[in-house]
Amino acid sequence: MLRARDGDAAAWTALVERHTETLWAVARSWRLSDADCADVVQITWLRLVERLDTIREPEAVGAWLVVTARREAGRTARERGHEPLGAASAALPPPDDVVAGREQVCAVGTALRGLPRRCRDLLRLAALVPRQAELAAALDIPVGGVGPTRARCLQQLRRKLVS
């Protein structure tokens, strides 16, 4: 966190890679749309940038991000008329389903880490940036190359998941 605050791009990348999946999980727990979840995650990172110099315990940045995401997701959910998944106990899945789901998420995360960096970056950004033009600009590739490249990366991910 301290290196990121000092402008170390690699430290920022590591921070984002470490915490983004958790922020998405927090946003999804409020039953938000994918677009609203993406907004919550992006706003959470923006809040960190805005308050970078005020964080007193850099080692607790993960907890700070989760609390911030929870607050932002709650605000967004209230605007949309949603409740968090835990609010209605009848909506909770059976524990076996929760465990299976977590195992699946872990398997996908492990498979993602085994992909080449270009594919990891593309797939992570594609989850956040729905427009191909923005995705192409962020990755510095032609707009027409986004779809085929994404398809190849997804195929590599599928192969890793079945092996």
Rank of each mutant, 00 (worst) to 15 (best):
S29P: 09
R71N: 10
V67R: 13
A91D: 12
A126Q: 13
G109L: 12
R131Y: 04
A10P: 08
Q155G: 15
G109H: 03
A25Y: 09
G74C: 08
P148S: 02
A35W: 06
R56E: 12
L128H: 02
A38M: 11
R124Q: 08
L128G: 05
L23K: 14
T20H: 01
I43Y: 12
D36Q: 07
P148K: 00
A35F: 01
T13S: 09
T76F: 09
S163E: 13
G147S: 14
R18L: 15
G7V: 13
E79R: 06
A77Y: 02
E83C: 15
L112Q: 08
V16L: 10
L123Y: 02
A126G: 07
L115P: 07
R113N: 08
L154G: 05
A88T: 08
V146M: 04
A126W: 12
D97Y: 15
A133V: 12
V162Y: 08
V67Q: 11
A151K: 13
R159N: 15
P148C: 05
G86Q: 07
R47G: 04
V66R: 03
A133G: 12
A126H: 06
A27D: 01
V143K: 00
V105R: 15
G74S: 04
R113E: 12
E72L: 11
E50A: 14
R80E: 03
S89E: 05
I141V: 03
Q132R: 07
S29K: 02
V99K: 09
Q155V: 06
E57Y: 07
P142W: 00
A87W: 00
R131G: 15
C37Q: 03
G81C: 09
G145S: 13
V61G: 00
R31A: 04
G109M: 14
L154W: 10
G145F: 05
R80T: 08
V40L: 01
L32D: 01
L52H: 06
A9W: 11
Q155I: 15
A126S: 11
G81D: 04
L154N: 06
I43T: 15
A133L: 10
A77D: 01
A63M: 14
T20N: 04
L65T: 07
Q156D: 10
T68R: 00
R131M: 10
K160I: 05
G145P: 08
A14H: 11
E50M: 02
L139E: 00
R51N: 09
P142H: 00
I43W: 12
L48E: 02
I141L: 04
G7P: 05
W45N: 12
G62N: 01
D97L: 11
L122G: 01
L154M: 04
